[in-house]
């Protein structure tokens, strides 16, 4: 498996979830783990460019695939990715726990709909929970990121 462009060994135990493998073995703790059954969206990563739940994927299933985590989204350490920048500018995070999942879900949304309607934004972020309930600013950030493209 390639994680953020770097070839990486698979775990020995096939029952290891991708979310746990990323956090515990690779120390990529930007992938957050909330519910571990696919409801909260915090653990969203990109698998071959498409957002998926890393808690619903065995790490061994990512063999021969590209995984992008929040750590691999920005092109370098100097600048934020435009979506991250938009979240920053729109104050689209409070505690930040849900943010990595939201940012990667929005990446998938904007790849599919570069100029999303309000309904598409609503639908696109509906699989992610923000318990600070900061959805209004998250929607603002999506519009900002779309405009910045």
């Amino acid at each position: 498996m390639r994680v953020n462009g770097i070839a990486s060994p698979l775990p020995e135990d096939p029952r290891t979830l991708l979310s746990d493998h990323l956090r515990h073995q690779l120390r990529l703790t930007g992938t957050h783990v909330g519910c571990e059954h696919g409801v909260c969206g915090c653990c969203t990563v990109l698998l071959d460019g498409k957002p998926v739940r890393s808690c619903l994927l065995l790490a061994v299933q990512a063999a021969d695939h590209d995984v992008t985590t929040i750590e691999g989204l920005a092109p370098d350490t100097a600048a934020l990715h435009p979506i991250q920048q938009a979240f920053h500018e729109a104050h689209a995070l409070q505690c930040g726990f849900c943010t990595p999942g939201f940012v990667l879900a929005v990446k998938g949304l904007l790849d599919e709909h570069p100029d999303p309607t309000d309904e598409q934004i609503q639908e696109g972020i509906s699989g992610n929970l923000c318990r600070c309930t900061g959805y209004a600013n998250i929607r603002k950030a999506v519009r900002l990121a779309a405009a910045a493209r």
């Binding site: 698998l47 498409k50 957002p51 699989g127």
Partner: peptide, 9 residues
């Protein structure tokens, strides 16, 4: 059916 991210898989 669930959400887009779930349907991707």
């Amino acid at each position: 059916v669930a959400h887009q991210v779930i349907r991707n898989r």
